[in-house]
Protein backbone atom coordinates (compact mmCIF):
# COMPACT_ATOMS: atom_id res chain seq x y z
CA UNK A 1 0.00 0.00 0.00
CA UNK A 2 1.24 3.47 -0.72
CA UNK A 3 2.08 5.81 2.03
CA UNK A 4 -0.78 6.78 4.21
CA UNK A 5 -0.19 9.96 6.13
CA UNK A 6 1.12 9.53 9.69
CA UNK A 7 -1.82 11.53 10.94
CA UNK A 8 -4.31 8.86 9.86
CA UNK A 9 -2.11 6.04 11.05
CA UNK A 10 -1.90 7.67 14.46
CA UNK A 11 -5.64 8.32 14.61
CA UNK A 12 -6.48 4.73 13.72
CA UNK A 13 -3.84 3.18 15.94
CA UNK A 14 -4.89 5.27 18.91
CA UNK A 15 -8.59 4.51 18.42
CA UNK A 16 -8.01 0.79 18.02
CA UNK A 17 -5.56 0.61 20.92
CA UNK A 18 -7.80 2.48 23.32
CA UNK A 19 -10.95 0.62 22.30
CA UNK A 20 -9.07 -2.63 22.78
CA UNK A 21 -7.85 -1.59 26.18
CA UNK A 22 -11.39 -0.69 27.18
CA UNK A 23 -12.23 -4.38 26.99
CA UNK A 24 -15.30 -6.16 25.75
CA UNK A 25 -18.65 -7.38 26.95
CA UNK A 26 -19.01 -11.07 27.59
CA UNK A 27 -22.68 -11.82 27.68
CA UNK A 28 -24.95 -11.21 24.78
CA UNK A 29 -28.06 -13.27 24.06
CA UNK A 30 -27.67 -12.78 20.34
CA UNK A 31 -24.21 -14.26 20.38
CA UNK A 32 -25.46 -17.56 19.08
CA UNK A 33 -23.05 -19.23 16.80
CA UNK A 34 -24.99 -19.88 13.64
CA UNK A 35 -22.55 -22.26 12.16
CA UNK A 36 -19.48 -23.95 13.32
CA UNK A 37 -17.32 -25.82 10.93
CA UNK A 38 -13.98 -27.45 11.20
CA UNK A 39 -12.39 -28.78 8.11
CA UNK A 40 -9.15 -30.26 7.19
CA UNK A 41 -7.66 -29.24 3.97
CA UNK A 42 -5.68 -31.20 1.48
CA UNK A 43 -3.04 -28.53 1.24
CA UNK A 44 0.05 -30.04 2.70
CA UNK A 45 1.90 -26.80 2.95
CA UNK A 46 5.65 -26.60 2.67
CA UNK A 47 6.20 -25.12 6.02
CA UNK A 48 4.85 -27.89 8.14
CA UNK A 49 4.30 -27.19 11.76
CA UNK A 50 5.76 -23.83 12.39
CA UNK A 51 3.96 -22.43 15.35
CA UNK A 52 2.03 -19.31 14.58
CA UNK A 53 4.46 -18.15 12.00
CA UNK A 54 2.33 -19.24 9.10
CA UNK A 55 3.11 -17.64 5.81
CA UNK A 56 1.69 -14.28 5.97
CA UNK A 57 1.70 -12.45 2.74
CA UNK A 58 3.26 -9.38 4.27
CA UNK A 59 6.24 -10.75 2.45
CA UNK A 60 6.51 -14.40 3.17
CA UNK A 61 9.86 -15.91 2.76
CA UNK A 62 9.08 -17.80 -0.35
CA UNK A 63 7.41 -20.82 1.19
CA UNK A 64 5.33 -21.13 -1.92
CA UNK A 65 8.41 -21.19 -4.02
CA UNK A 66 7.65 -17.99 -5.79
CA UNK A 67 11.01 -16.66 -6.77
CA UNK A 68 9.92 -13.54 -8.51
CA UNK A 69 11.62 -10.56 -7.06
CA UNK A 70 10.14 -8.04 -9.39
CA UNK A 71 6.90 -6.38 -8.54
CA UNK A 72 4.48 -9.09 -9.56
CA UNK A 73 2.46 -8.48 -12.65
CA UNK A 74 -1.17 -7.65 -12.73
CA UNK A 75 -4.28 -9.68 -12.13
CA UNK A 76 -2.94 -13.09 -11.45
CA UNK A 77 -5.95 -14.80 -10.05
CA UNK A 78 -4.06 -17.87 -8.99
CA UNK A 79 -7.23 -19.90 -9.02
CA UNK A 80 -5.56 -23.11 -9.98
CA UNK A 81 -1.85 -22.74 -10.12
CA UNK A 82 -0.20 -23.26 -6.79
CA UNK A 83 1.83 -20.37 -5.58
CA UNK A 84 0.97 -17.79 -8.14
CA UNK A 85 -1.41 -15.75 -6.15
CA UNK A 86 0.72 -14.02 -3.60
CA UNK A 87 -0.14 -10.66 -5.00
CA UNK A 88 1.87 -7.53 -4.90
CA UNK A 89 2.78 -7.89 -1.29
CA UNK A 90 5.22 -10.74 -1.77
CA UNK A 91 8.18 -8.70 -2.80
CA UNK A 92 6.88 -5.40 -3.96
CA UNK A 93 8.26 -3.23 -1.19
CA UNK A 94 9.26 0.22 -2.22
CA UNK A 95 12.67 1.42 -1.17
CA UNK A 96 12.69 3.91 1.65
CA UNK A 97 12.37 4.15 5.40
CA UNK A 98 8.97 3.64 6.99
CA UNK A 99 7.78 3.94 10.52
CA UNK A 100 5.12 2.16 12.50
CA UNK A 101 3.81 1.99 16.02
CA UNK A 102 2.06 -0.58 18.16
CA UNK A 103 0.56 0.12 21.53
CA UNK A 104 -1.07 -1.51 24.51
CA UNK A 105 -2.31 -0.54 27.93
CA UNK A 106 1.11 0.08 29.32
CA UNK A 107 3.05 1.63 26.51
CA UNK A 108 4.05 1.43 22.93
CA UNK A 109 6.75 0.27 20.57
CA UNK A 110 7.80 2.32 17.55
CA UNK A 111 9.97 1.02 14.75
CA UNK A 112 11.62 2.27 11.64
CA UNK A 113 11.97 -0.18 8.74
CA UNK A 114 14.35 0.43 5.87
CA UNK A 115 13.67 -1.18 2.51
CA UNK A 116 16.51 -1.49 0.02
CA UNK A 117 16.09 -3.06 -3.40
CA UNK A 118 12.63 -4.26 -2.42
CA UNK A 119 13.89 -6.14 0.64
CA UNK A 120 13.76 -5.45 4.34
CA UNK A 121 17.32 -4.23 4.93
CA UNK A 122 17.09 -3.15 8.55
CA UNK A 123 14.67 -2.68 11.41
CA UNK A 124 15.25 -0.35 14.32
CA UNK A 125 13.30 0.02 17.52
CA UNK A 126 13.03 3.78 17.79
CA UNK A 127 10.94 3.92 20.93
CA UNK A 128 9.92 1.43 23.57
CA UNK A 129 7.84 2.54 26.52
CA UNK A 130 6.42 -0.80 27.61
CA UNK A 131 6.93 -2.06 31.13
CA UNK A 132 9.45 -4.62 29.90
CA UNK A 133 12.92 -3.42 29.06
CA UNK A 134 13.63 -2.98 25.41
CA UNK A 135 16.22 -5.75 25.71
CA UNK A 136 13.33 -8.24 25.83
CA UNK A 137 12.54 -7.52 22.22
CA UNK A 138 16.04 -6.72 21.03
CA UNK A 139 16.38 -9.98 19.05
CA UNK A 140 13.22 -9.29 17.04
CA UNK A 141 14.53 -6.82 14.43
CA UNK A 142 17.10 -9.39 13.26
CA UNK A 143 14.33 -11.98 12.87
CA UNK A 144 12.34 -9.62 10.68
CA UNK A 145 15.36 -9.06 8.46
CA UNK A 146 16.24 -12.73 8.16
CA UNK A 147 12.63 -13.85 7.59
CA UNK A 148 11.67 -10.83 5.49
CA UNK A 149 8.35 -10.61 7.29
CA UNK A 150 6.83 -9.62 10.61
CA UNK A 151 6.35 -13.17 11.89
CA UNK A 152 8.75 -13.13 14.79
CA UNK A 153 8.95 -15.62 17.63
CA UNK A 154 6.97 -14.74 20.69
CA UNK A 155 9.04 -13.54 23.56
CA UNK A 156 7.89 -15.41 26.60
CA UNK A 157 6.70 -13.03 29.26
CA UNK A 158 6.71 -10.06 26.95
CA UNK A 159 3.82 -10.97 24.68
CA UNK A 160 2.41 -7.47 24.68
CA UNK A 161 5.70 -5.92 23.69
CA UNK A 162 6.14 -8.55 20.99
CA UNK A 163 2.67 -7.89 19.63
CA UNK A 164 3.31 -4.19 19.63
CA UNK A 165 6.54 -4.75 17.80
CA UNK A 166 4.77 -6.92 15.20
CA UNK A 167 1.99 -4.38 14.79
CA UNK A 168 4.54 -1.64 14.32
CA UNK A 169 6.49 -3.60 11.71
CA UNK A 170 3.33 -4.58 9.86
CA UNK A 171 2.25 -0.99 9.81
CA UNK A 172 5.59 0.11 8.41
CA UNK A 173 5.52 -2.67 5.83
CA UNK A 174 1.99 -1.84 4.75
CA UNK A 175 3.24 1.62 3.84
CA UNK A 176 6.17 0.13 2.00
CA UNK A 177 4.02 -1.98 -0.23
CA UNK A 178 4.26 -0.75 -3.77
Amino acid sequence: MSKLSPKWITLCTAAIGLAYTAGYVVTEPKAAAVSLATQSSVQSGVNGSQNQGTPNSQGNSGSQGNQSSQAPSNSQSGQSSQGSSQTQSQSGYKDGTYTGQGMNQIGSVAVSVTIKQGKIASVQITDCTTSYPQSAIDPLPAQVVSRQNANVDNVSGATESTNDFVTAVQQALSQAQA
Partner: peptide, 28 residues
Protein backbone atom coordinates in the same frame (compact mmCIF):
# COMPACT_ATOMS: atom_id res chain seq x y z
CA UNK B 1 -7.56 -12.19 17.25
CA UNK B 2 -3.93 -11.32 16.45
CA UNK B 3 -3.17 -11.07 20.14
CA UNK B 4 -4.39 -14.64 20.52
CA UNK B 5 -1.66 -15.62 18.08
CA UNK B 6 -3.64 -16.04 14.86
CA UNK B 7 -2.40 -14.44 11.66
CA UNK B 8 -4.80 -15.86 9.08
CA UNK B 9 -8.41 -14.79 9.47
CA UNK B 10 -11.20 -12.76 7.94
CA UNK B 11 -13.80 -10.56 9.58
CA UNK B 12 -16.82 -9.71 7.47
CA UNK B 13 -19.40 -7.34 8.92
CA UNK B 14 -22.05 -7.04 6.26
CA UNK B 15 -19.54 -6.52 3.47
CA UNK B 16 -17.10 -4.44 5.45
CA UNK B 17 -14.11 -6.73 5.61
CA UNK B 18 -10.67 -7.10 7.13
CA UNK B 19 -8.63 -9.94 5.64
CA UNK B 20 -5.48 -11.05 7.46
CA UNK B 21 -2.80 -13.35 6.12
CA UNK B 22 -4.20 -16.01 3.81
CA UNK B 23 -7.18 -18.28 3.35
CA UNK B 24 -7.35 -22.03 3.93
CA UNK B 25 -5.84 -22.64 0.48
CA UNK B 26 -2.92 -20.42 1.50
CA UNK B 27 -3.88 -17.70 -0.95
CA UNK B 28 -4.69 -14.09 -0.23
Amino acid sequence: IRDEGFVNFIINAGGDIYAAGHNVREKP
